[in-house]
Design a protein around this nucleic acid. Sequence first.
DNA 1: AAGTGGTCTAGACCACGGG
DNA 2: CCGTGGTCTAGACCACTTC
Lengths: 254, 254
Amino acid sequence: MAQAKYQEIAGRLRDQIDSGTLQPGERLPSEPDLVRQFDASRNTVRLAIALLTNQGLVVTRQGLGTFVSEPARPFTALLSRVNVPPRQSGSTQLPVISDAADEAETTRQVVEKSPASASVAEKLEISPGDLVVVRRRQGAIRAIPWMMMASYFPLDIAEGTPLEQAGEISQGSITLLAELGFTQIGFVDEIGAKMPSPREFAFFGLTTGTPVIVVNRTAYTQDRPIRMTRYVYRADRVRLTHEVGTIPARYHQG
Amino acid sequence: MAQAKYQEIAGRLRDQIDSGTLQPGERLPSEPDLVRQFDASRNTVRLAIALLTNQGLVVTRQGLGTFVSEPARPFTALLSRVNVPPRQSGSTQLPVISDAADEAETTRQVVEKSPASASVAEKLEISPGDLVVVRRRQGAIRAIPWMMMASYFPLDIAEGTPLEQAGEISQGSITLLAELGFTQIGFVDEIGAKMPSPREFAFFGLTTGTPVIVVNRTAYTQDRPIRMTRYVYRADRVRLTHEVGTIPARYHQG
DNA sequence: AAGTGGTCTAGACCACGGG
DNA sequence: CCGTGGTCTAGACCACTTC
C-alpha cells in the first residue's frame, strides 16, 4: 500500500481543514459517518483522528464530537527589552504585555529545600543532589493557567535569608541578592520546547498535541551563577518576545 | 474503572523510565510480552505505547522494538547578545554557538515571489495576499537538518533589487537594505512552539512527539517594518539563548 | 432515548530487520 | 526464518452530552 488507509483519511480531513472547507470550531463528521464515508473500520477512523489530534489540528470531546482547533489569542511574555533599566530587564517575573496584563494573577510563592536535579546543578555549578532553595509560583490570566515557574538558589547563598521565607520578597530577589553581596550583572536565557509532563498537562488543562515552552534563566554575578529560574508556558496560548535596538513604541505590542 | 487499562500500563512503563529501571536507549518489553504481563489485548498495549510516544518518552522502530528516548545534545542558536556590534546582533542568520558550529551548513538561498499569508501580512503591515519577496534556506549540522528559515520582504522594498536574486547577498541583507534607504534600527522576536506540519516533520526527520520552535523576527526602520524572518527549529536538538548584561566569557557556551 | 466519543477484545495479515 | 512493530477488521460495552 502506498499509504496506509488511516493516513489517507487523515490527509483528506487535513486538506479540508487547510482549505477552509472545515472551519475552526466546526465539527468533523462523526466516527460512524467517517466509517461509512471511507469504508473503514471504526478503529482505523480513530487512528486517523488520533493523528490529527497529536498534530494539534483537532480536539475531541466525549459526547459531543471532534472539532477543528480554534487558535487562541496568545498572551505575550516579555523576555527582555534592551535599553531599559536593568532592574526591569532582569526582573525575576517575566512581565506580561498582552492586553490582559491587568488581569494576570500569580499564586503566593511556595518555598522548599530540595536536592538539585542534574539540569539545575549544571546551571548553578554545584553537584547534583546538593540542596538548593526552591521558590515556586504559578500564574493565571482570566482563570486560565498559563505559567509555572521555579527559582533555584544555591544553599550557601539562600540559607538563613529571607529567600527561605514564603510569600513575596518586598524589595525583589535581585535587590535582596545584591544586599547579600551578590550583585547580578547579567543573565542568560536558554529556550526550548517539549511535550508536557503529566503534571504540566494537568495544571494547564492542555489538550493532546499541545507542547510547552521552557525557559531557563540563569543569573550571574561577576564570579558565579546565583540563581536559575525555570519558566514553563503552554505553547497554545503564550508567545515570548524580546526586543533589540530601538523599537518605535507602537510596535511594542505587536 | 478509576483509570483506563492502557493508562495504567503507560503509567507503569513511565514509572520505570522515570526511576531509571528502563534506561535511555533501552528496549521496552515487546508488545506480546506486555500483552502477557498486563493481561491485555495487543491494541490496548499499543494505546499505552502511543501515549508514551506522543509524550516523547519512547520511540518505536519497526522490526526492532520500542526504545526509551535518548536526549540528544542540543545545538544552541544565539538569539541576541547585548553589547555586541549591531551588525552581528541583528544578523539575519542566527549564529550557532554549539561546539559543532564549524560544521554548520546551509543550503543556497532560494527566492520566490508569493502572496503574503495572514501572519506575514500582519507583521509587515500589508494586506494578506499582497506580493512579498521570500528568501528561503535550510540548515544542517553533521548531516542533521536543524533549521528552516524564510525571510519576507515587502514588494515595494525588494522589487528590482538584489534581494530578488538567489544565492548569497555579499554584504548581507541588513547592509543592503540600508543602502536602499531602509536602515534597520531594531527588531522584535516572537517565540512560540507547536507540533510540526507534515513538511516540517519530514524535513527534520522527526519522531512523533517532537515539537518545533518558531521564531518570528521582525526588523524595523524608524518608520516601518522592512523584513520578517521566520525560523523553525526542531525542539529535540535545538535550544535558543539570549544574553543580557555582562556575562563572563566562560558562561557563553553554558 | 439517541448520538457522540472512549475503552477493550480477538484475531488476521503485512513490512521491516537481523540471524 | 523468526520476532518485531504496523495496519486493519468486526464487534462489544461504557461514559458523556443533549433532548
